[in-house]
Nucleic acid binder design. Structure first.
Ligand SMILES: [Mn+2]
Ligand SMILES: [Mn+2]
Ligand SMILES: [Zn+2]
Ligand SMILES: [Zn+2]
Lengths: 141, 141
DNA sequence: TTAAAACTGCAACATTATTGCACTTTTTGC
DNA sequence: GCAAAAAGTGCAATAATGTTGCAGTTTTAA
């Protein structure tokens, strides 16, 4: 069954990354896997419905996942933290994200990496580079 | 006098961009010119002190400036809108911004442009590209 | 099996931004 | 310059999003 596969996958990822297999963490990780794009706390809740843990728990889980580098925060124009699995990101660079100025939808541009920025002044140590693009999506252009 | 120059400059920019020369708009524009980096509403207020208009007015002015493409919003990790003058940005690309993971300071990497992303699927129209970098600043590395 | 460690939910609170509306300032047309 | 219109402003209330403290529960590990 596909759902069992997903759950098994989530549990495996948790274990590998050193996290406990709690119900809340499994639900959230499964949903991030399904989504394949950044989700705000609210979008996550809408998708999980009944199964969604309390918002405090969600934020705390995301914080732990970020600390463990399982998840990245993405900063978009929607006035909320947005979380996505880090598994499609390079060590130092996440794939770019495209947000439509008309409908507000955000798309992952998986596979489209830009070169890392070059020529920083002495002393700057780059840990991560993120690219945010805005424009019109196919449905709106 | 340098201050008068700055005020004159602000007024000229406003006029050119089709904005009225109100006290609030002049103060804010002067401060954005001085800052030369993105400011949150709160940072702006700290800099302007007494002269700072009500926060509602600040937000509304920034909204107008953004609509007139005089100012850009920059999305950083600080849970606030950040505004900066658009005058060091290309038509389609702002210069990258570097935020230190240790002290939280943000730096403009003026002059360091990346190539525009290439290879988007049909139908995507790019209007602006922004690059956000995190890492350690010279003082913290 | 049980004690320790980790996690969760609820309520209260904090921070940041927005809305409505009455008042003021600035611009415009004479 | 002057009056009317247009644009901008401030205050209070409210909304949206995220955080803290703490008691109780679940998970892990011995
Ligand atoms: Mn993505
Ligand atoms: Mn800048
Ligand atoms: Zn769209
Ligand atoms: Zn620093």
């Amino acid at each position: 069954m596909v759902n069992n596969d997903l759950k098994a996958k989530a549990e495996k990822i948790l274990k590998t990354a050193g996290f406990n297999s709690t119900k809340a963490q499994i639900f959230i990780l499964q949903e991030l896997l399904k989504a394949g794009k950044p989700l705000s706390r609210e979008e996550l809740a809408a998708r999980l419905g009944e199964k969604c843990p309390d918002k405090v728990t969600v934020y705390r889980i995301m914080e732990r996942f970020c600390a463990g580098n399982l998840v990245h925060k993405v900063y978009l124009s929607n006035r909320a933290w947005n979380y996505e699995l880090a598994h499609h990101c390079d060590e130092k660079q996440c794939h770019p994200h495209f947000t439509c100025n008309n409908c507000g939808e955000t798309f992952c541009l998986t596979g489209l990496f830009l070169p890392m920025v070059k020529g920083l002044k002495k002393g700057f140590v780059v840990q991560r580079q993120q690219v945010r693009i805005e424009g019109l999506c196919p449905a709106c252009s």
